[in-house]
Design a protein around this nucleic acid. Structure first.
Length: 476
RNA sequence: GGCCCCAUCGUCUAGCGGUUAGGACAUCGGCCUCUCACGCCGGUAACCCGGGUUCGAGUCCCGGUGGGGUCGCCA
């Protein structure tokens, strides 16, 4: 079998949300694992709702996630253009073919008339479903009026396809109505455009959310009407909100960019998303390359699920925590914007590299990391009043002064030597380590909690450490 | 309501006829400890219900119940 061609086809009517990102991911993974192609196509046939801002936001999010595309906006490709709004000629040609074969027809019923009928029916019986009555199905005249194009659905038999996730799905044709292919304004509707493009672009597998499963029979019908072989289909179970309802694009805080802004690493996001509906035994954490190697449709589940913030945060954290998953350089680069946000625009690189190992197992996001890194890059730490009140009370001045003296000549200025010196000092004074460590911690970091004190001192250096101890002693 | 789909701890899931039903998150204890974390040890916690098939069903079949999707000149 030749290399598969997959696509992700968002409509630019808002930001990319995590549900969409998950769909993109599954397509991307399969393309990458099979040496196939991943195509990005923008479905902007609804002029009302589409915007360039949305296109930009979607492309940004895709790039941030590392879901690179082989054909599509910005990179082009042999099957372009990749915006549906620029492919109208294709749809028109396809539509005419269908009409000339008697498989589609022009319908002159106005939307208003149909809507009125629908409303009237609902009034009589709220549970009834409105079905297009086929008014124009066999019409032969061609009045000079606006029209839509409808597909002439078969009235008997069934339309079947085999889904790579759900297996055989059969839908009676009698339950299909003559759905609209082309609007009054000449723009194609989703089912027509998707089929024409997927065929033209040589798509071999269409993977999308389960909410599209009902479109599939209609699309299969269209493939047959054109005389084309349908692609394979794979539908993904839905990712619902924590409450159990549909994740909505309007739900601004589930946008990919929201997660980026909150300081989650891209691979953390992807790792959570892939494990949602796909699993490999007990394995939870995957690097990008491991994922590409491991992914397969046979291990995709069928049941919908609810998004879980805590689990998500943990998976993302796992990626920040493990140096094998997030190298020092990446960590530093990713933390930089969050430090900048705190007014720390150009942290000294060597110190940053030294400090990251101290915070990476404590910071659950890059935003938290920046907060924990803060005092390494200021002349003076910001003093937490509560911590100061508790640890820098009476007697602290003496404790800190003595500690500074005990540490002044320590060689080398490094964690274990500092700890050793401090323990000797504390023992000689008949104190407990914590009696000295807490005041010192607040003096050096400004806070009641920090990475191990002596490691912090080590990164801070002799001069700044002694300076901070002395300054705090002066204040206390 | 029509059509389609789904069903294991609170959540994500493993399980593919015989298991003390496993893991992860969350939660509750404990250990480690200069604080905070990390890590480690342990606890609570699930097969929706009813019929079949079978020597034996979480696993296979049927029905019910529950949940979801979809029924647009949105995608």
């Amino acid at each position: 079998m030749s290399a598969p061609r997959l696509r992700f086809a968002p409509s630019p009517s808002g930001y990319l949300h995590i549900g969409g990102a998950r769909t993109a991911l599954f397509n991307w993974l399969w393309a990458r694992s099979q040496g196939g192609s991943f195509i990005l196509r923008i479905e902007d046939t609804d002029q009302e709702r589409s915007s360039l801002d949305s296109v930009r936001a979607i492309l940004d999010s895709m790039k941030w996630l590392g879901l690179d595309w082989d054909e599509g906006p910005e990179v082009g490709g042999p099957h372009g253009p990749y915006f549906q709004s620029e492919r109208k000629a294709l749809y028109r040609e396809a539509t005419e073919t269908l009409i000339s074969r008697g498989l589609a027809y022009r319908c002159y019923c106005t939307k208003e008339a149909l809507d009125a009928q629908r409303a009237a029916l609902k009034e009589r019986d709220p549970k009834a479903q409105f079905v297009y009555p086929g008014t124009c199905r066999d019409r032969t005249d061609t009045p000079d009026q606006p029209f839509v194009v409808r597909f002439k659905s078969p009235e008997s038999g069934s339309t079947d396809f085999v889904d790579k996730v759900f297996g055989a799905i059969s839908t009676p044709n009698a339950s299909q109505q003559d759905f609209v292919l082309v609007r009054t304004d000449g723009y194609p509707l989703y089912n027509l455009a998707a089929v024409v493009d997927d065929h033209a672009m040589g798509i071999t597998l269409v993977a999308r959310g389960r909410d599209h499963i009902g479109n599939t029979p209609q699309q299969v019908l269209l493939y047959r009407a054109f005389g084309w072989e349908p692609p394979e289909f794979a539908h993904l179970p839905m990712m619902l909100s924590p409450k159990g309802d549909k994740l909505s694009k309007r739900n601004a805080d589930v946008g990919v960019q929201d997660y980026r802004d909150r300081g989650y690493p891209a691979m953390g996001v992807l790792n959570y998303l892939v494990r949602f509906g796909w699993s490999l035994g007990d394995r939870e954490i995957f690097s990008r390359s491991e994922l590409i190697r491991a992914f397969g449709w046979d291990r995709v589940g069928k049941a919908d699920g609810k998004f879980d913030d805590k689990k998500f945060a943990d998976v993302a954290f796992e990626h920040l925590k493990q140096p094998e998953l997030t190298g020092l350089d990446d960590y530093a680069a990713w933390a930089a914007p969050f430090l900048e946000r705190r007014g720390l625009a150009s942290p000294e690189p060597a110190r940053l590299r030294a400090a990251i190992p101290l915070v990476r197992e404590r910071a659950r996001t890059l935003a938290e990391a920046a907060e924990m890194l803060d005092y390494f890059f200021r002349p003076e730490p910001e003093l937490d009043p509560k911590a100061a009140a508790k640890a820098l009370g009476p007697g602290a001045a003496e404790v800190l002064g003595e500690l500074a003296e005990a540490l002044r000549g320590v060689e080398p200025w490094e964690g274990s030597a500092l700890e050793e010196a401090t323990r000797r000092h504390v023992e000689a004074r008949g104190l407990a380590l914590k009696d000295v460590a807490q005041p010192a911690r607040v003096a050096v970091t400004g806070r009641a909690a920090s990475p191990p004190l002596f490691d912090v001192m080590s990164v801070l250096g002799r001069e700044q450490t002694l300076h901070r101890l002395a300054r705090a002693a002066g204040k206390a």
